[in-house]
């Protein structure tokens, strides 16, 4: 390496982390709690990490735990590709590589203070949102009314059911859940997540609204929020793209001129006006 580069760190080099805890959440999702082998790990809700399994590759995963909680950080990984399949084979004590936290587009933890906060989650969209949900609940007095909407396709795909039940029990949280294709075990709302929006008790117009779910969900949620006159500046969307390098070089995650890995993955809706490829 040349002298000038020797002083700089290799932006592609993962650092080692250890799996502190791992368990299957259902057939496709696996929960992992990790701790970096060297030094602390500071992040803001909404940021992601590049997870390396040596010999298989790297995948971007948003952190699911809140920085207010001690003892490492948590990921939930859906088995969909080579890397995520390999992550599913990891158990307590195993090593993996981590780069991050990455992404300057985080949840508006400060901006939302004093305001009503509404989380709209579709399926696995709960996983990244959970970081900010728990951050808000750990700093409950700083925020206004808290509403969490969760839409899931099938009963067995529900995630963090104990935590969701605990949120539901709280007096200072309105927790609404729906299932699109329910079976006999489900006794509550049926349909897609947009059905829950009219049921929100707190004032929506002035609320900060966080949306995360599959790409198809965004269009319909945004239409509904438009009807409820939520200003675009108050809506934040978590966008999914192929964030290969995670540091703004490789080009895969580009949405028009914007790199999702650098300026996202959380975007303010009003900023997407100049990004026709976004939604």
């Amino acid at each position: 390496m040349c002298q000038c580069c020797a002083e700089k760190k290799d932006i592609y080099l993962p650092e080692l982390a250890t799996v502190m805890d791992a368990k299957a959440m259902n057939v496709t999702e696996r929960y992992l709690r990790l701790a970096m082998d060297d030094g602390p790990f500071d992040f803001v809700p909404g940021q992601f990490v590049e997870v390396s399994v040596a010999g298989i590759g790297e995948a971007p995963i948003t952190i699911s735990s809140s920085p207010t909680q001690n003892g490492g950080f948590e990921l939930v990984v859906r088995k969909v590709g080579n890397v995520t399949k390999a992550i599913h084979n990891l158990n307590k004590g195993d090593k993996l590589g981590i780069r991050g936290p990455l992404g300057d587009g985080m949840y508006p933890v400060d901006e939302a203070k004093g305001k009503n906060v509404v989380f709209i989650c579709g399926g696995i969209g709960l996983v990244p949102q959970r970081s900010f949900v728990n951050y808000v609940l750990d700093n409950r007095d700083d925020y206004g009314e808290v509403t969490i909407l969760q839409g899931t396709k099938e009963y067995d795909q529900r995630l963090f059911t104990d935590e969701v039940a605990a949120w539901d029990k709280r007096d200072d949280v309105q927790m609404l859940e729906t299932i699109d294709l329910p079976d006999k075990r489900w006794k509550s709302n049926v349909g897609v997540v947009t059905k829950l929006i009219p049921m929100i008790k707190s004032e929506l117009k002035s609320a900060v609204v966080l949306v995360c779910g599959p790409p198809v969900m965004y269009k319909f949620v945004l239409m509904s929020l438009e009807e409820h006159e939520v200003p675009h500046e108050n809506i934040f969307l978590n966008l999914e793209r192929k964030m290969k390098c995670g540091v703004g070089k490789c080009g895969h995650c580009q949405i028009n001129s914007t790199y999702t890995c650098m300026d996202g993955p959380v975007f303010r809706y009003s900023d997407l006006a100049t990004m026709p490829e976004a939604i």
Binding site: M1, C2, C4, C5, K8, K9, D10, I11, Y12, V247, G248, K249, M262
Partner: peptide
């Protein structure tokens, strides 16, 4: 400029500086 801005790419820049 692209490889040195924001996040400095030591792999590209090592070759370039050499």
């Amino acid at each position: 400029e692209l490889f040195s801005q924001d996040n400095y790419d030591t792999h590209y820049m090592t070759r370039r500086n050499n």
